[in-house]
Design a protein around this nucleic acid. Structure first.
Length: 565
RNA sequence: UCCGGGGUCGUCUAAUGGUAGGACAGCGGUUUUUGGUGCCGUUUGUAGGGGUUCGAGUCCUCUCCCCGGAGCCA
């Protein structure tokens, strides 16, 4: 028996509600959900959770999940976002069936239902300005004040509302309000606005409409029109639920009345999930765009080299609850590492080269160092990935960190007198090194042992360290852009945006002069390789020779150093 | 201030009123031609006080703390 399975594909809170409904015979046992983004930006990791929950709960209960764009505010919405969202959904692994749905397709129905509410005395046109309405709403524990237009004849409201639609009035001059209860303890029920006049053209309906429904008036109604049974949303809509229900209870619905259930949204440490802030990064040119590998957008993560399957596994694992929480980015990274460890090809590269001369390496008739090709595993985790060969010669580069003239305790890499293995090649022993005026080591001299070709000694003796290397004459220069956790910094500033404001182009850490073995040419755009001992890097899908750090490797030596202070 | 929602290891998340478990993070080993991977072990938790019960994370009660709500945003 293994460990109990705690990675339920659908979280308890949501499943329990569905199960209870099914048990009670609600919705005739039918389950239908929807993912309702507003097309005013790109999807990010936070949306991923909503996507996973909605699509998976539908799948688990044999239902469908619609992609419906909540395009009720023409101000910031664009068709390009619609296309990108459909695309990102497919990449994440939740391709939609056919064309997406739009709240804007229901504008006419919504309008007619609004007329119905007016007729029944449940809605009225208010012509006070926003500030006045807001003031009259009162405050927490404070009474509200009824609008002077609240009791106007229904015929008058109907007439005004139709003229609002026709564009007779200026934006902001009139709104349609639900007539509920100005003394309600829940502010959402104090005569909420259903329609406002907006002059901007809509990305789909153009200038046909001059009034647009608010979220509250559009969302539940759209759910009802589509036959959604379970409308899953985040915690901040909790106080909207009574309003969601109120509207639906007063309408002649074509299906059973949908039920709204709230759960906590996904937050991650070191990660900005505010669309507003992400947009600012793009608008201010601090990042290249929405797909900049430093962005937590799905396309950013994609370009950074995060496998979609790893994101899905993570989303699946964290579950859903009503507890406000913030997951550690390390947990996501562990899923990324685990997938990449399985599939990523291994390559050798050095970021900060240190020249190594093999003093006893043979030369040919012309006096040039001999070149020998050695065989290396592409991925020890998967022998089926085969081997490759790399050229070895008398002048090499190793990582600067891999040599210490004066090694501290527990340092197993190269140092004077110490024998180490150069991966797949030979054992070498350092016997000398050269420093510059500043005392920096600039060159190390080693001797190799011809008996150890392939990396093992005939006498079976062990070495404590195996190091990666590249042949200086054969190495290719890469520009490895190491975007690490940028928008990031711990919580205090993150929530308020202070850290965000500190960001600038200089924050970018760019390392150049990276040397890599020729086999790198075989890396396809977008493909992720593991540079041994350095981490996982994604070859950029657009710019040749550019690599993004996907995620680092666990580094025990770094931990040892950290502990020593 | 009023209403609503929450509070289980450091972080997330489990536990028909019946042994508080898992993952990540940490720590210590071990294996290893990556200080990677794997494997083994291990530290740490029910916000607090009362109560009901043979037995409470779970039920009752009081207190404390956190989050959300007064857009013509979603």
């Amino acid at each position: 028996m293994g460990a109990p399975d705690q990675t339920s594909s659908v979280a308890n809170i949501v499943r329990d509600v569905v199960l209870a409904d099914n048990g009670a015979g609600s919705f005739g046992g039918r389950v239908q959900t929807r993912f309702p983004p507003e097309p005013n930006g790109y999807l990010h990791i936070g949306h991923g959770k909503a996507i996973a929950v909605n699509f998976q709960i539908a799948a688990e209960f044999g239902g469908v999940c619609n992609l419906r764009f909540d395009d009720t505010n023409p101000a910031a919405e664009e068709t390009s976002f619609v296309e990108a969202i459909v695309d990102d959904l497919a990449w994440l692994g939740f391709p939609i069936d056919g064309a997406p749905l739009f709240a804007s397709d229901y504008f006419q129905q919504l309008f007619e239902w609004a007329e119905l509410l007016i007729t029944e005395g449940l809605a009225y046109v208010d012509e006070q300005d926003g500030a006045t309405i807001s003031e009259q709403r009162g405050g927490y524990g404070q009474p509200g004040v009824e609008s002077p237009h609240r009791d106007r004849p229904t015929e008058e409201s109907l007439d005004l509302f139709r003229r609002m639609r026709a564009g007779e009035f200026a934006a902001g001059s009139r709104v349609l309000r639900a007539r509920i209860d100005m003394q309600h303890e829940n502010m959402q029920l104090r005569d909420p606005v259903m329609y406002r006049i907006v002059d901007a053209p809509h990305h789909r309906t153009g200038d046909v409409w001059h009034v647009y429904p608010t979220y509250d008036w559009a969302h539940g109604q759209s759910d009802a029109i589509e036959g959604v049974t379970h409308s899953l949303c985040s915690l901040e809509f909790d106080s909207h639920r009574p309003l969601y229900d109120w509207f639906l209870e007063h309408l002649p619905l074509p299906h059973d009345q949908p039920r709204q259930t709230e759960f906590a949204r996904l937050e991650l440490t070191h990660t900005i999930t505010s669309k507003r802030k992400l947009r600012k990064l793009v608008d201010d040119g601090i990042v290249d765009g929405w797909d900049d590998p430093r962005m937590p957008t799905l396309r950013g993560l994609r370009r950074r080299g995060y496998p979609a399957s790893a994101i899905r596994d993570f989303l699946d694992f964290i579950g859903v609850s009503r507890t406000n929480s913030r997951n550690e980015i390390e947990l996501l990274e562990s899923f990324v590492r685990s997938e990449l460890n399985r599939v990523a090809q291994r390559r050798m590269a050095v970021l900060r080269p240190l020249r190594v001369i093999v003093t006893n390496w043979p030369t040919d008739a012309l006096g040039d160092p001999v070149v020998e090709w050695v065989e290396l595993n592409n991925n020890p985790e998967n022998p089926a990935d085969g081997t490759r060969t790399a050229p070895f010669s008398g002048v090499l580069h190793i990582e600067r960190d891999d040599f210490r003239a004066d090694p501290p305790p527990k340092y197993f890499r190269l140092s004077p007198g110490r024998e180490v293995r150069l991966r797949g090649a030979f054992f070498v022993t350092a016997h000398d090194y050269i420093t510059d005026e500043a005392g920096e080591v600039v060159e190390v001299h080693v001797t190799y042992n011809p008996e150890t070709r392939g990396g093992s000694a005939p006498d079976g003796r062990k070495v404590k360290s195996t190091m990666h290397w590249v042949s200086a004459a054969h190495a290719v220069d890469l520009t490895a852009a190491l975007y690490d956790r940028l928008f990031t910094a711990e919580v205090p500033g993150e929530a308020t945006g202070e850290v965000f404001d500190d960001l600038n182009a200089e924050s970018l850490e760019l390392l150049t002069g990276c040397k890599g073995e020729p086999a790198l040419a075989a890396v396809e755009p977008g493909e992720v390789v593991q540079f041994e001992r350095l981490g996982y890097f994604a070859a950029d899908s657009r710019e040749h020779g550019l690599f993004h750090r996907t995620v680092g490797l666990r580094d025990e030596w770094a931990n040892i150093q950290k502990r020593r202070g």
